[in-house]
Design a protein around this nucleic acid. Structure first.
Length: 840
RNA sequence: GGAUUCUUAGCUCAGUUGGUUAGAGCACCUGCCUUACAAGCAGGGGGUCACAGGUUCGAGUCCUGUAGAGUCCACCA
């Protein structure tokens, strides 16, 4: 028997370990169709936040649904080494101990990283268990493990040999704190207070100057030209002449270039080809010299003595001061402009000229665009609009900088000897030196759906389970991850890596702002699980919003989800008490209400399955809640009370069993707890039981309609009693047309035999008539509903009029689907009958 | 500049090939400790579906525009 109170902390104890020990999470049943998912690998040193909890809940709902529905489910778990994020954390930790990364050296530093990784990966495992994730632990991967290492090397070498990866000297985004290159996607732009510094650039051999505005005066040391627009009449005479770069007094040319916009700033732009991507292009067009004036830590080099080794921000102050002192500064105009920051270290990004490895994107991006036009082979996004967003990204993408000057990661498999370059995992021979850089962490995650399945060794796993079936991702990592998996998979495996991609939004605080540590409005899954249970959290997260939209976290709503589970608990408790003795189900002598609930159950199941298959979980929950709370609890359980026959018990059992199974993917723990108490079980655990199927034997349309009408009558009569304050002991005159429905009326309206009278009594009375029942209540006290009947008649008349008008419209009758028209005709008939009854 | 989402009850949200008279939870009002559940039961009130046009027999749903809020991409000397 179930305990009296639903206590999630008790219910959720020890079940996960049992499931795991019994091997329910393992894949490999060759008789079944595979269903594969790879878990988006969280950062190994990170903590699970609500967004993760949401993401994994969606996947686990699906894993459990598909498993119960007869698929060989493989859900591959794993973690990401998160190169720069982890490295930054370890560097920080060492710094606090007074240890410098570079002094420690590569090997020792990597040992520190591994130690850190081992320490933290335990947390992730605990949280996975806490969320109830049915992942196949035997296939767990890490983006730095042997399997991933092989795949990354194979991919790199293949792409290098095909010319898809190249080395080039370009301006890239540089993180001076981590001292590494970044991809465009790892730069976060923020609006900051800055200024336009208007500086005098004297025209050579004259007393005239032009006003050049810049936000970064410290870069003037690297100026090798000033650009003006060729159509700018103000400067047309200056083109080809020389101007003097202040402080260094270098003479540079004025060039005409469209990069300089007439309306922007002063129309004259200083050109620093080594320190600005646009200027770099201008430099290329005009064959300008590139002067590098900062080192990898953003300290000044190749500058006059007094500026040497200054930090870039110090240098700016000093440059401005020097300009002022020499009367070279015209104005400082305060502006707000957006500046890039490193996603992980939050350091201001410096455009930096350096030699890096790049993935050549054009052809890869085109392959995505082309495949997405092919219905058979494309990835289906839920919601669909993200297909367009992927296409847009593909159309305008830049080459991807994949080399990182970090140590924590997979080292680039390139070897140098003199001017020879060889791509190879191992040293190609005597005297070769390996490239010191590692690969962007996203290079390995981009291979995740197939690297994890041992693509590199063409394993059976890869052959059976790839391409995968389903992927979840928040829309914030579509460009980082989803898009890259798509083109890498097309490139290396020739197919898209997954069939369906479910895109969810972000979790926000109740006020709509982002949840973040700095705002102090963050909520952790652990807190919420402790308070309401994992079942409530999962159900809440997966069913409260429509697919693709953000979710405003509302603890009150989570709490009412707990109430829903509590309701299920109590309904189950009642049912189990009543069906304890049931040995096998028998459906002889089904009563009207039995047929009704079985029919409702069937209809519910139909809707639930349809929406499960479309990943429309919010519709699943709406349907289930209505069925469980209204139909099953409020009506059927009430009707089943005081009935002891095998048929009632069987129906109670069938419906409860089905409810538990439909709910199990969402709330695995409580459904297992209750399932274990069922008198008849089709499996040793609900996890491996069969998902219910729509059953024609449970279809009773006509009877179902009769009961629906009776239930409507009951609500109306209760309303009548409430408004007139009619008490239990009121006398009643009753006439029920369908004998089978009488029991329902009497039990639901709590009609006592001794209150039933035959004759009209000379006291207040109210009457209710429908096609099933004619009932009159006689009662003491005042009559509150004099106008009630009048109102009802009026409403009915209006409705009839509306419907008659509609049905006399030829366009409607001819064009609307037949079912809709028939329904209207039927309703009209019913309303007319009802009106007639009332008018009598 | 380009793209995109949202605007439905006091609050948080559903409403998916256009189809009865728009739903839920919370909150609110009335009455109930009816032995599964007071974290509950029964009943009730509350919405010109942001606004303006259009398509249609029929629009919360499709189209166009307007307003407000948000997000992404690009640019930002």
């Amino acid at each position: 028997m179930l305990s009296k109170k639903y206590d999630h902390s008790v219910v959720e104890q020890s079940k996960y370990e049992i499931w795991k020990e019994r091997g329910y999470f393992l894949s490999g049943d060759k008789c079944k169709t595979p269903f594969t998912m790879t878990l988006p690998p969280p950062n190994v040193t990170g903590n699970l936040h609500l967004g993760h909890a949401w993401d994994v809940s969606i996947q686990d709902v699906l894993a459990r649904y598909k498993r119960m529905d007869g698929y060989d489910v493989l859900w591959v778990p794993g973690t990401d080494h998160a190169a720069i994020a982890t490295e930054a954390k370890v560097v920080n930790k060492l710094k606090q101990q007074g240890v410098d990364k570079y002094k420690l050296g590569r090997d020792k530093f990597l040992e520190e990283c591994w130690a850190w990784t081992r320490e933290y990966s335990g947390n992730i495992h605990k949280e996975w268990a806490k969320m109830g994730m049915s992942i196949d632990y035997s296939k767990e991967r890490f983006t730095l493990d042997e399997v991933s290492f092989e795949a990354v090397n194979k991919a790199f070498i293949e792409m290098y040999n095909n010319g898809l990866i190249y080395r080039g000297k370009k301006i890239i985004n540089w993180d001076p704190e981590a001292r590494t290159a970044l991809s465009n996607e790892e730069v976060i732009y923020k609006d900051v207070e800055g200024a336009f510094y208007h500086i005098k650039y004297y025209i050579e051999d004259t007393e005239d100057y032009i006003d050049v505005a810049t936000t970064r005066p410290e870069t003037l040391f690297g100026d090798t030209a000033v650009a003006v627009n060729p159509k700018d009449e103000r400067y047309i005479d200056l083109i080809g002449r020389n101007v003097i770069v202040p402080i260094v007094n270098r003479s540079v040319k004025v060039v005409a270039d469209n990069h300089a916009e007439i309306d922007k700033g002063t129309g004259a732009v200083k050109i620093t080809p080594a320190h600005d991507p646009n200027d770099f292009e201008v430099g290329n067009r005009h064959s300008l010299e590139r002067i590098v004036i900062m080192d990898e830590t953003a300290h000044m080099i190749n500058v006059p003595e007094e500026f040497m080794n200054l930090d870039r921000f110090e240098a700016r102050k000093k440059v401005v001061k020097t300009l002022e002192e020499n009367n070279l500064l015209i104005d400082i105009e305060k502006i707000t402009h957006s500046v890039g920051f490193s996603e992980r270290t939050d350091a201001m990004v410096e455009p930096y000229l350096s030699e890096q490895w790049f993935v050549k994107m054009r052809d890869l991006a085109d392959s995505v665009i082309n495949t997405q036009m092919d219905k058979e082979n494309k990835v289906n996004f839920f919601p669909k609009r993200f297909e367009k967003i992927i296409n847009q990204k593909a159309e305008e993408c830049y080459d991807w900088c994949i080399s990182r000057q970090l140590w924590w990661g997979i080292r680039i498999p390139i070897w140098y000897k003199d001017d020879k370059i060889v791509a190879s995992v191992k040293s190609p021979g005597e005297g070769y030196v390996q490239d010191p850089d590692v690969l962007d962490t996203w290079f390995s995650s981009a291979l995740w759906p197939f690297s994890t399945l041992k693509w590199a060794s063409d394993d059976e796993l890869y052959k059976r389970y790839f391409p995968t079936s389903f992927l979840t991702a928040g829309y914030d990592i579509i460009f980082f991850w989803v898009f890259r998996m798509m083109f890498q998979s097309l490139n290396l495996t020739k197919v898209m890596p997954f069939k369906d991609c479910y895109v969810h939004g972000l979790i926000r605080a109740k006020d709509g702002r982002k949840m973040s540590k700095s705002l102090g409005n963050g909520v952790t899954p652990t807190e919420m699980i402790d308070k309401y249970g994992c079942d409530a959290l999962r159900y809440y997260l997966t069913t409260t919003t429509a697919i693709g939209l953000d979710l405003r976290f509302d603890e009150e709503k989570l709490s009412s989800t707990w109430n829903f589970i509590n309701k299920i608990w109590n309904a189950s408790r009642f049912t189990l008490m009543n069906i304890e003795s049931l040995k096998k189900t028998s459906l002889n002598d089904l009563k009207l209400e039995d047929k009704w609930i079985l029919n409702r159950y069937n209809e519910t199941l139909k809707v639930v399955r349809k929406n499960m298959d479309k990943y429309e979980f919010q519709n699943v929950s709406a349907e289930l809640e209505r069925f469980i709370w209204n139909d099953f609890c409020s009506s059927y359980i009430e009707l089943s009370k005081n009935k002891d026959d095998e048929t009632t018990k069987s129906v109670l059992f069938i419906v409860l069993d089905g409810i538990l199974k439909m709910l199990h993917p969402f709330m695995p723990f409580v459904t297992e707890e209750i399932y274990q108490k069922l008198p008849i079980k089709d499996a040793e655990s609900i996890m491996i039981s069969e998902y219910p199927k729509v059953n024609k034997k449970y279809s009773f349309k006509e009877e179902s309609e009769v009961v629906s009408n009776v239930l409507d009558d009951i609500v109306n009569i209760r309303n009548l009693k409430a408004t007139n304050k009619i008490t239990k002991d009121a006398k009643i005159k009753i006439k029920v047309l369908n004998e089978e429905t009488l029991a329902i009326y009497t039990s639901q309206l709590k009609i006592l035999n001794e209150n039933i009278v035959d004759d009209d009594l000379d006291i207040n009375k109210v009457n209710y008539k429908s096609k099933n029942i004619d009932i009159t209540y006689f009662f003491e006290g005042s009559k509150e509903d004099e106008n009630k009947k009048e109102e009802e008649i009026k409403k009915l008349k209006e409705s009839i009029e509306r419907r008659e008008k509609l049905l006399s419209n030829e366009n409607y009758v001819n064009k609307a689907p037949k079912e809709i028209v028939d329904l209207d005709k039927k309703k009209l008939k019913e309303e007319k009958e009802k009106l007639e009854l009332l008018m009598k």
